[in-house]
Amino acid sequence: MITKRIIPCLDVRNGRVVKGVNFEGIQDVASPVELAHFYNDSGADELVFYDITASYENRGLFTDALTQVAKEIFIPLTVGGGINTLDDFDRVLKCGADKVSVNSGAIKDPSLIEKAAKKYGDQCVVLSMDIKRVDGKFRIFSKGGRIDTGIDALEWAKNGENSGAGELVVNSIDTDGVKQGFDLEMLQAISELVSIPVIASGGAGKKEDFLELFKAGCADAGLAASIFHFKELSIADLKKYLNDNNIEMRI
């Protein structure tokens, strides 16, 4: 059977990996290629690159870094950030990405998911959602979590699946950067609704958080950034711990 996946996420700004807390207060971490090597060697099942480049002029730095990583790392690569059109899909797929994650781009043009799924296949299209509770309801936020779109997250997830998204990334703004565990309530609500894989993001602080996530059965993969970047937790130790606790891992 297929394993649960551990996915480090690299937020790339102007060619460097950074990590913010609650999307603000950005800190510089390392070169994407160095980190990708480090994660590959320690057993990451997949890598996600988010392009948070501030200006259009610097976008080339991101694709250069991506190309370099794809030349040296042979596990699935997902790219997100600044994906608004089919041309953007083309741009990152040509640099060696295997999957492309859309977020604000799908909010601006909801037909993007369907068009991309038709052209590149469902397995290539990942719908990434930044979700926050507003008046007790799960709401979709855009622009890196700054703007409340008013869209109901459950409806948005279901629409995404129906349009051809092959996976969902559920990023809880409420738990992101706080390191108190994944947002199980939010993940449960979404995974009950869809049959495509759900990737949990936001809130991982220790290995027990991942065990709790997979035991709850509400995600196929766990995604995290800062705990891996700052070496608070090694992927190899995490996977061994999960495997010892009867969660199948690729060791």
């Binding site: 059977m1 297929i2 394993t3 996946r5 099942d45 469902d122 397995q123 092959g166 996976e167 049959s195 495509i196 894989p197 196929d220 690729r250």
Partner: peptide
């Protein structure tokens, strides 16, 4: 079981 069969096996 989800389709596609996607992941590490």
């Amino acid at each position: 079981l989800k389709i596609p069969h996607m992941g590490w096996n």
